[in-house]
Simulated assay, not measured.
Amino acid sequence: MKISVVIPMYNSEKTITTCINSVLNQTFRGEIEIIVVNDGANDNSKTIVEELILNNSSSIDIRLINKVNGGVSTARNAGMKVADGDWIALLDSDDEWSANKLERQIQVLKENPAIDFLGACRNGEKFSNILWKKLGDLNKISSRDLLAKFVFIVPTVIFKKEILSTVGYFDENLRFAEEGIFFIKIAQNYNCYLLNESLAFTGGGKPHFGHSGLSGNLKEMEKGELKNLRELLNLKIINYFEYLLLVAFSLLKYIRRIIIVKLR
């Protein structure tokens, strides 16, 4: 089992070393490759990664791909397309993994070979429920579960590379909420599970929305979410009545987030 870790990078000179080191320091002893995709950074990010590659004494291969700036979806896709692993794990350049992240997830995957996609939690948190559905330690997550509560966090997920041949890649026209439709499509077609343990540390502990970074632009995030709902309707994953309910629910969440940010 080989794991390809795909890290999109843009102007991440302050965080990329910690990010990559969190992969190099994994307790998992299987085969790993790191693919860093430089999405046209104009700071020192590229030089820092080149130095890490030059001084890398571990058994983990680090590759750097340079491309013109096109957004996080284009960068993730570029990395996934050249991945050699049987499994792909995603990590963002301002996030890091717990030392046992891969070891714990691979243990679960070996014990449950029917799982195609496995997410986890972050920042010491756990999910207690999705609406009236109580969540335990390991939970099967459907596409409809994700419509009610989005429990899959990008830097925690690992999935079979073969999924890409069926579902495709991230929508490169989306710069916000890009993971939403991608993960829902996967959950519609494959066995997706949530390991209800915190195995990643994201965004330096900053709030999950309304702060710097891509998640900071609440308006654009909402536009991305509404676009995802329209595509789900077109794909007939939801019907028109469900679409209207979900749009209303999304707008209410958007208003709530604006109020929370203003009161912070």
Rank of each mutant, 00 (worst) to 15 (best):
N11H: 08
S12D: 15
T15D: 03
N21G: 02
S22E: 02
S22W: 07
S22L: 05
V23M: 03
V23C: 11
L24A: 03
L24E: 06
L24Q: 07
N25R: 11
Q26L: 13
Q26M: 12
F28M: 06
R29S: 11
R29F: 09
G30A: 12
E31W: 11
E31P: 00
I34P: 02
I34T: 07
V36I: 14
V36K: 02
V37I: 13
D39N: 15
G40D: 08
A41R: 04
N42V: 13
N42Y: 11
N42I: 13
N42F: 11
D43W: 11
S45I: 00
S45E: 04
K46Y: 10
K46C: 12
K46L: 08
K46M: 11
T47H: 03
E50I: 09
E51G: 05
E51F: 02
E51N: 15
I53R: 07
S57L: 12
S58A: 11
R63D: 03
I65W: 03
K67V: 07
V68N: 12
V68E: 13
N69C: 10
G70S: 12
G70N: 05
T74K: 09
T74R: 09
A75V: 07
R76Q: 11
A78F: 04
A78M: 10
G79A: 05
G79I: 00
M80H: 06
K81C: 09
G85T: 15
D86H: 14
L90R: 02
L91N: 06
D92A: 08
D95F: 11
D95C: 15
W97K: 03
A99F: 01
K101L: 08
L102S: 01
E103L: 15
R104C: 06
V108W: 02
L109Y: 10
N112H: 14
N112C: 12
I115K: 05
I115L: 05
D116K: 06
F117N: 00
L118S: 04
G119R: 03
G119E: 06
C121E: 12
R122Q: 12
E125P: 00
K126L: 13
K126I: 15
L131C: 08
